[in-house]
């Protein structure tokens, strides 16, 4: 059995914020009708969360369900639990029109932690990161420099960023540059 590793195992950077590649993260891309009772109860049973509303992310312990589009969710859970969750989803949703795919190894996840996490993102993404416009409980899919990315804020000082694994090094380099200690602009200070 080969050893599964994340895109940039152990990569960290200490700058204006701490940038850290989060290692193996479980992720399931789930497509289906968000209003379907079977889907809603499957999310409740397997993730322990309610169905997230438009552009929301709902956390429950180590799990979260995020709204990706009108017919797509991203389920976040411990890496080791993905196979079991997929089996349970397939059982619960049998007979309905849906798609559930393990995308854990197709993605890279970074954690930014520190007081200027909002600013580090604001320099890379065309998104209003002011506290009144974006905050914990929301997810935003957007462009981070030249690549697609999505992020959410587990708490006021942290941002989690997910992108395709193939561009993990590019994303890490971007985040490092944006978090350079001498590159602060104090936008939300």
């Amino acid at each position: 059995m080969s050893n599964t590793i994340s895109a940039l195992p152990g990569a960290t950077y200490e700058g204006a914020v701490r940038v850290q590649e989060m290692g193996l993260c479980g992720m399931i891309s789930l497509r289906g009708d968000h209003g379907d009772e079977k889907l809603i109860s499957a999310i409740k049973d397997i993730m322990g969360t309610v169905m997230p509303g438009q552009r929301e992310i709902v956390h429950q312990d180590e799990r979260a369900a995020a709204w990706m589009s009108p017919d797509e969710l991203l389920l976040l859970l411990p890496y080791a639990d993905v196979r079991d969750a997929l089996t349970r989803l397939e059982t619960a949703l049998a007979g309905t029109h849906f798609l559930a795919v393990n995308v854990s190894d197709a993605r890279a996840v970074f954690r930014l932690h520190g007081g200027s996490a909002r600013e580090v993102i604001a320099k890379l993404c065309p998104v209003d990161m002011s506290p009144g416009a974006f905050g914990p409980g929301q997810i935003r899919r957007t462009r981070m420099a030249q690549i697609p990315a999505a992020f959410w804020m587990p708490d006021e000082d942290s941002v989690h960023v997910v992108c395709f694994r193939s561009v993990a090094q590019y994303a890490f380099d971007l985040l490092k540059q944006s978090a350079h200690p001498q590159a602060g602009v104090g936008l939300y200070a």
Binding site: Q54, S69, P126, T142, R143
Partner: peptide
């Protein structure tokens, strides 16, 4: 109109 995001042109 699908996700409610108001974004700038380069996101589209």
């Amino acid at each position: 109109p699908c996700c409610g995001v108001t974004g700038e042109e380069t996101e589209f």
